Computed example of a mutant assay.
Amino acid sequence: MRLPSGDGAEVQIRPVAYQFPWIATPGDWDANWLMVEGVVRLSNGEGWSFSDPCLTTWEASSIAEWLRQVATGSAQPSAFPSEDDERLQIFTEPNLALSLETRVQGRVTIRVHISVQSLPPWLTADHDKDLFDYFVSLNVSEADLQGAIDDWASEIAAFPNR
């Protein structure tokens, strides 16, 4: 999934494999962990990539649902979410989180919160910010949002719940 911003920033994330492909016990958490690759580019051109088992198959599906809610206008913006804000989409591993900043004239600004092992290399996992404080704001058109929804749905289809 690619979320491009009007200012040149961009976040790409995609599931690439089950973390433990040899485990196939239905409903087992270990059987449903996904390796996720991410590429982040800031508006100033700096960027980095990461690869980490940071989503379950269930959480990947919840991202698709949240993105659909953003597209339809049923997801509510959040001034600046904290861990306790139910509008912040958090997952078991805190590497990634999502929040909606604004919706204005056919565009949405989505925050991709990045923590721990997925942080940029110039920040360490023990930096002085709290979880989810580091984020990239992406001002995304409706067309690009729909493209991201379609891409994510296609990408996670290859990794069904086991």
Rank of each mutant, 00 (worst) to 15 (best):
F80K: 11
G147V: 03
A153S: 13
W152F: 04
P26L: 03
D84P: 00
D130H: 13
L138P: 04
S82E: 12
A9R: 08
E83M: 10
Q117D: 14
K129A: 10
V40G: 05
E37P: 01
I13T: 04
R87I: 03
L138I: 07
A79Q: 12
D126W: 03
F20Y: 15
A71E: 13
G27D: 13
S154Q: 11
R2M: 02
E101T: 06
R107N: 11
G73Y: 09
G6R: 09
L96R: 00
V108D: 11
S118Q: 03
E101Y: 08
A17H: 09
A71G: 05
P53V: 00
L100H: 11
W66D: 14
Q19A: 14
I156L: 04
D126V: 07
L123P: 01
D84A: 12
R111D: 03
L145R: 10
D52Y: 15
E65K: 09
R107L: 10
V36G: 00
I13W: 12
W33I: 02
E65D: 14
L3D: 05
W33S: 05
D84E: 14
P121N: 12
R2V: 15
W33R: 10
S61W: 03
S74T: 15
V16L: 08
D128E: 14
S115Y: 07
I23H: 11
